[in-house]
Simulated scan of single mutants.
Amino acid sequence: MKWILFDKDGTIIYFDRSWMKIGLQLVDDFMEVYQDEIGDKEAAYAHLGVVDGEIQPGTIMASGALDEMVKAFCDIAGQDVTKWAQSRSQILVDNRVPENVLVEGIEETLETLKRQGYKMGIVTSDSKKGVEQFLEITKFDHFFDVVISTEANAVEKPNPEVLNPLFDYYDVAPQDVVMVGDTANDMQTGVNAELGLKIAVLTGVGLEQEFTNADYIVETANDIVEIINQ
């Protein structure tokens, strides 16, 4: 293995609760804007994974990609609400106040991997602004050789094209790349891009039973050092 790609939220840092706040706000806004088209609101909330004002693990709003959320909104509203959902989501993301709580020991792990000669990258559904805030707060920019964020209308995980910034600019074969993440989407990205190794961590929103495409399931990203050095 030559490259290690990390998801950010739920992998390098504990899952950022601000994302849950955004998700809940997006759902509430959708319910208000399209209230005339939505029949059973309680059923609609449940379909999206929101029960008693909380997003439930393993649901669309917890770990689904934006296009999956948008499709669910369209199904519930009985019409195409894509433009509204994408626009409202981007506004909420741009105004997000992030919470960056590092997984214990992750800085030492990144230092070890860097010292051992691995190239590293971030592949996140967060925006460029959110990643820049994260790197500024943590001072981790020197660890990462590539940073891939997700802007409006861009491809998202698990679309393998999300990794084009890596494969277009660096001479590396997919089988020499490790994907480390906390969701089934992260693991599916590894499958779709034919990456050499897929490691799921349990520090985020993903449930262990969802990681059917993972080669390894570990407690934290710190456990990958032993795995890739085998």
Score class of each variant (00 low, 15 high):
7 D>Y: 00
7 D>V: 00
9 D>M: 07
11 T>Y: 09
13 I>Q: 08
17 R>S: 14
21 K>M: 09
24 L>W: 06
25 Q>K: 14
26 L>A: 07
28 D>E: 14
30 F>E: 00
34 Y>C: 01
34 Y>I: 02
39 G>P: 03
40 D>S: 06
43 A>H: 12
46 A>I: 14
48 L>S: 07
51 V>K: 13
58 G>R: 02
63 S>T: 14
64 G>Y: 08
65 A>V: 09
69 M>L: 15
70 V>R: 04
72 A>M: 11
79 Q>P: 00
84 W>P: 09
86 Q>F: 13
88 R>D: 07
91 I>K: 11
92 L>N: 07
93 V>N: 13
93 V>L: 15
98 P>H: 06
107 E>K: 10
107 E>F: 00
111 E>T: 12
111 E>I: 10
115 R>V: 07
118 Y>C: 04
120 M>L: 11
121 G>E: 02
122 I>R: 00
128 K>N: 13
131 V>E: 11
136 E>C: 10
139 K>Y: 11
141 D>Y: 11
142 H>W: 08
143 F>C: 08
146 V>G: 02
147 V>E: 10
148 I>Q: 03
149 S>G: 11
154 A>W: 15
156 E>G: 10
159 N>R: 04
163 L>K: 00
164 N>T: 04
168 D>P: 01
169 Y>W: 05
171 D>V: 10
173 A>F: 10
178 V>Y: 01
182 D>R: 09
188 Q>I: 13
190 G>L: 05
194 E>I: 01
196 G>C: 05
196 G>Y: 03
198 K>H: 08
208 E>F: 08
211 F>M: 14
214 A>M: 08
216 Y>M: 07
216 Y>W: 12
217 I>Q: 04
218 V>A: 00
224 I>Q: 03
224 I>K: 04
225 V>Y: 05
226 E>Q: 14
228 I>P: 05
